[in-house]
Amino acid sequence: MQVAQQVQAERDNRRASGSPSRTNQGAPPRSHHAPAGTKKQRAIITEDLNAAIVRTADARAASVLKSRS
Rank of each mutant, 00 (worst) to 15 (best):
S21V: 07
T46W: 06
K39S: 13
N50Q: 15
S63K: 14
A9M: 10
R11G: 02
Q25S: 12
R55K: 12
I53V: 15
R60L: 14
A43N: 10
A57E: 10
R15Y: 06
D58A: 14
K39I: 03
A34V: 01
K39C: 02
G26S: 02
T38I: 04
A4D: 08
N13F: 14
A9S: 13
S63M: 13
V7I: 15
M1D: 13
S19I: 07
A52P: 00
Q25V: 00
P35I: 06
A51P: 01
H32I: 01
M1H: 07
R22Q: 08
A62Q: 14
R30L: 05
G37W: 05
V64C: 03
L49P: 00
N50R: 13
Q2R: 10
Q8V: 10
S17F: 02
R11M: 15
A62T: 11
V64L: 15
T38D: 05
A36Q: 14
E47I: 07
A36L: 13
S63W: 07
V3Y: 01
A62D: 12
A43M: 04
K39V: 01
A43F: 01
Q25R: 14
Q41N: 12
P28G: 02
E47D: 13
R11E: 11
R14L: 04
P28C: 03
I45S: 15
P35C: 09
A9Y: 05
R68V: 15
I44W: 06
V7N: 05
N50I: 12
P35Q: 15
R60V: 12
R14G: 08
